[in-house]
Structure formats: C-alpha cells, structure tokens
Amino acid sequence: MAEAHRRGWSEGYRSGSESSTSFSKSRVERLEHRVKELEEQLDATRRVYQVDGHQVVEVGRYSYRWRGSEPLEVGDRVLLPENYVSRMKDGPGPAAGVVSKLGTTYRGQLSDIVRRAPATGK
C-alpha cells in the first residue's frame, strides 16, 4: 500500500510539474508574440520614409539617405560611403550593402548612399 501511495504521489507530482511547465511555456510564447506586435505598432508610428525630401532606407543595421531619382526597394544592392570600420574590413572605397527595409526610426544624422551597386551576373 505504501508503494502504491508513493507511486501515485510521484506520478501526480510529475503530471502537475509538466502541466505547470507547459502552461508557463505557453504564457511566455503569448507574451513574446504580444511584445513583437507592440514593437511593430511603435515602429509603424515612428517610421519615416523621407528626410529633407530624400528617401531613407535601412541597409543592415544602419540608416542611409538616397538622393537618386529612382526609389530604392528592399533587396536593391547599393554602395555605401567608406567609414572607419568598412575601411578596415573591406579596404578603401565604398562598401556594398543590400537595402533591408524602407524608412527608418533613427533620428540622427544620415550618410548618403554613394550609388546603386552594379548588378551581379549569374
């Protein structure tokens, strides 16, 4: 009888623990989803697509201004101005990048994109 009691208690404890873990995991997933929704809403209210009449885009983690006549689209290849890091990493001259997002939420000074990058032949 003691063995049956111990086994019942053990199985009940394990079942309760698994149920609690499952509930907690589900709650964390719902909260993460809600945070993502709220971040997207905040981004949408703060995002600007032009600064001083010129298009603004994100290339990787950074924002740039495009003064060209034809608007850029996500996926367009561009040449970015040389900076300290790009010079060490890629050598002197403009560095290639890909437009990852239209507009920006950044409010600081923007560098200008040098030009569209030549198409790569495949």
Rank of each mutant, 00 (worst) to 15 (best):
V98L: 07
V56Y: 00
S69I: 12
E58K: 13
V98T: 15
R34F: 02
V51R: 15
L72Y: 04
H5F: 13
R27T: 15
Y64I: 10
L80K: 09
R30Y: 07
R65I: 15
E58M: 15
P81C: 09
S10M: 05
R65S: 14
R77D: 08
A2V: 14
V98M: 14
M88R: 12
H33L: 14
V85T: 10
V85K: 05
R46I: 00
S17I: 07
K101W: 06
R7Q: 13
V59T: 09
E29D: 14
R47P: 00
R107F: 00
Q109T: 15
E58S: 03
A117K: 05
A117H: 10
L31F: 07
S22N: 14
D76K: 08
M1K: 07
E58I: 00
D52K: 09
G97H: 05
G97I: 12
L38I: 12
L80A: 12
T120N: 06
V48D: 01
P81I: 15
G75H: 07
W9S: 04
E73D: 07
W66G: 00
E18S: 08
P92F: 10
S63M: 04
S111F: 10
S17V: 09
E58G: 02
A96V: 08
Y84V: 04
Q50F: 03
A96M: 15
L42R: 04
Q55G: 03
S86N: 12
L31G: 03
I113W: 03
D90M: 10
Y49K: 10
Y13K: 13
Q55Y: 04
G121K: 07
G121N: 11
G60E: 04
A96W: 05
G108L: 05
D90E: 12
D112M: 02
G8T: 10
V74L: 05
L110P: 03
S22K: 13
P71F: 11
K122G: 07
S69E: 14
A119K: 11
W9H: 08
Y64G: 01
R34G: 02
L31E: 15
A95W: 04
L72S: 03
T120P: 00
S19P: 00
K25I: 06
Y13W: 09
V57L: 02
P94N: 06
G8W: 06
S15H: 05
G53M: 07
V51F: 10
A95V: 13
A2K: 09
V56Q: 00
V35W: 03
S111Y: 12
V85C: 06
R65Y: 01
P94D: 08
Y13A: 13
R77K: 10
V35Y: 06
T105I: 15
D52I: 01
R67I: 11
R61C: 02
T104M: 04
G121S: 10
A117Q: 14
Y13S: 08
D43Y: 02
L72R: 02
R47N: 01
Y13R: 14
G68M: 06
W9F: 13
